[in-house]
Write a protein that binds this DNA or RNA. Structure first.
Lengths: 258, 258
DNA sequence: CGAGGGGTTGACGCCGATCAAAGCTGGTGG
DNA sequence: CCACCAGCTTTGATCGGCGTCAACCCCTCG
């Protein structure tokens, strides 16, 4: 009996997920057991004791999302947030003429959708996976429940928000002004720092995404990236993996902007 | 005895303030009695009961700062935050070539300096008053003390951070891309919405500040603003107070960006 | 009265947007 | 297996917007 309840629950989670994902499929990895999560100490719930998760009412699910999957849409309110374990998620905003602007790029350890805690406005952006993304989907009610029992969670949430804010400011300063080549240099350097790779190797984004990030045209991005490649400031070290000349890029980036 | 302690305390507050204010003077209005503050319900401490302030260890002071006063500097850590009651404060970032970029513009009800709660990194920006600014200076220790006794304060802080974040995103989307005239139009509209004035009348910023906000040159800003004035999209209604043609500016702003 | 700071305007050149077309790659179906 | 196509990247040509340098105006303040 219990078994059936759990099963239908699982299935409804999956189909709901599949419906929301407009592009591709999501692979459900199972109900999460946070208490024994290997990387919990790095994530949103790092401060909580293991016992905190014993009796949460709404379950946390663990997914792997294919590239290009929409996790949520601006204005929507699925009552869930996502904690990213692996991969990249872009937060975007569509202007009414169809122009897309990428506002933030989030990787491992980040949480997205926290703006729902604020009340009735819904998600502030559309969130789309860039890579294959490994993430936990946490019901908002669960966050609120945990917070009411463990007020220290609030500090963790605050730090996550502060982190978003710092990234947004960096975005404005480094990617929002100055000549195109400086912005691209900044972008590559930022990606390198964000990268999980010890060498700082990065997976180049599509030109369209890069254009939407730094706010210039696709052609210009392509020209500059191609130029970097020709000058060996950027070269392939593996399939979908590029290494860059940090010194040189920093010199370009520093030319006129921070 | 107690009286003298308080007095010297006051004086040290004042001189410290005067030292930090590199441009102009700050007028000290006195120690604050939050419990009876007329506008507390609108501010950071809105959720707290009146009794919460009975025995805070470090005092909250109330100042009026002259235009151009530096409240704090990037990287510094004065262990205080400011709650803005009236006026405008700009948060800026200097690039190493001397370029300034204004990252946020904050008015009544906003709190600045909350990033100190996060730990050891200090202020993330330099904060400078634009107008005459009426603000309360709250020691960080007081915030932490109040929060430990009233965990619900954390939600209020979270909302303030979320608000900053929303503003930053808006900044990126509306002011960080698109042709110069669209950005200026957006800027004026944003100012109008921020304005306390019921008609949405605004005090025009200096051209240099506007340039640092939208990331274009002073001359271009001047040209565009002058053009707006010539076309009566923008006209003076009083000393230092301008009204704008909302429809027309929105049309310009919508041309290609949000 | 002169000096200085902020705003406006003009002239010129370059960066980057736009339009257009040609490689390149992977997928699909014959 | 190859032909073909679609999508992405690269490259070229052209043109307009905006940065830059410079002069001038206006106002305030010493």
């Amino acid at each position: 009996m219990q078994f059936f309840a759990k099963l239908t629950d699982k299935l409804s989670s999956m189909t709901k997920e599949l419906r929301r994902s407009n592009c591709t499929n999501a692979e459900w990895l199972g109900r999460v057991d946070c208490a024994h999560c290997q990387i919990r100490k790095l994530m949103l719930f790092s401060d909580l004791p293991e016992t905190a998760f014993d009796d949460v009412l709404q379950p946390i699910d663990h997914f792997i999302f294919a590239p290009g999957t929409t996790l949520y849409e601006i204005g929507g309110d699925d009552r869930v947030i996502y904690s990213i374990r692996q991969g990249l998620v872009k937060l975007l905003h569509y202007s009414d003429d169809g122009t897309r602007r990428i506002v933030r790029m989030l990787g491992p350890r980040a949480s997205i959708g926290l703006e729902l805690l604020d009340g009735l406005e819904g998600y502030r952006h559309t969130a789309v996976t860039v890579n294959k993304v490994d993430a936990c989907r946490i019901p908002l009610a669960t966050v609120e429940e945990l917070q009411s029992r463990h007020p220290e969670l609030c500090n963790q949430i605050r730090q996550h928000l502060q982190n978003h804010l710092d990234r947004a400011d960096e975005w404005i300063i480094a990617l929002g002004a100055g000549p195109a080549r400086e912005r691209i240099a900044h972008l590559l350097l930022m990606q390198g720092e964000l990268s999980a790779d010890p060498n700082g190797d990065i997976a180049l984004l599509g030109r369209e995404d890069m254009a939407a990030i730094v706010g210039i045209s696709v052609e210009t991005v392509s020209r500059i990236v191609a130029e970097f490649k020709r000058g060996h400031l950027l070269y392939k070290v593996a399939e979908d993996l590029y290494r860059y000349d940090r010194e040189a890029l920093q010199a370009i980036a520093r030319a006129a902007a921070d």
